[in-house]
Design a binder for these strands. Sequence first.
DNA 1: GTAGGGTTACCA
DNA 2: TGGTAACCCTAC
Length: 281
Amino acid sequence: MGNPKQKWTQEEEEALRKGVAKHGTGKWKDIQRDPEFNKFLFSRSNIDLKDKWRNMFGGGSGQGQRDKARAKIKALAEAAPLAIQPFIPNASVIDEATGEIAVDGSAKHVDETKSTPRYDDMIFEAFTNLNEPSGLEIGVMISYIEKCHEVSQNFRRQLRARLKRLVALGKLEENQNRYKLKEDTPLIVKAAAKNPTLQEQDNRPRPVQSAGGAMFGETLDEAAVACAYRIAEAENKSFVAAEAVKEAERVAKMAEDAESIYQFTKEMLERCSGDEITLLA
DNA sequence: GTAGGGTTACCA
DNA sequence: TGGTAACCCTAC
């Protein structure tokens, strides 16, 4: 890829926006071919259009909606912090004086770490807090980080890249899409040293809360996250439907206007063709 | 033809 | 050095 990058101009972006408004997302070829926009987009391929739209708004489904989903998940997590991370051994929230897990501290911890820490910190935090001896699946890690931190648009891509990088650096090991901290990674040593019982806790089965407890073999954490996702997903669909209704209403209004103009023009034509002198206001 | 993940140039 | 945006690749 030695090609120099061709930055998008304001005109191109505007043409893309209008093209999407006219044809909808996913109709990149139609937009690109449309004579109205082609004069601005002739140097761009349909793929370019798709990529640019993804960069601008996070893809056809709308990054804004994905943000809303994330916000929803976070809101749920914050609304019920005890339900979401009740018993997970967490070196960050262990009371140094007593050695006990400070459950209330988990919410505080979440708040304190919201200020977009670096990916490495987030990754290691996930390893520490989710403490999975068999390795952490990337989806679980993403859910956890999205729940606890403000993340960028293409956070998932960046996270994957970062994980690969850490594997390459020998800080992590990957096995069947699960990531584990290498034994000699200082973080684990540090966490274990802080709380000597931590390693024992690792091997314990996760306790299940009786009130609305975990179901079907999931941990409570996973169940809560899955639940939050379902709700967010449903709300997304509702939002998309509402947008579609708005769009339909807008098109109907345009049709109505067009009809008025047509009637007016027709009337004028009739008057003019009938030798009638018509004054326009 | 499109979606989504990966790669890389560029910038702060 | 990390983040972003443009470009590339591949599966569907």
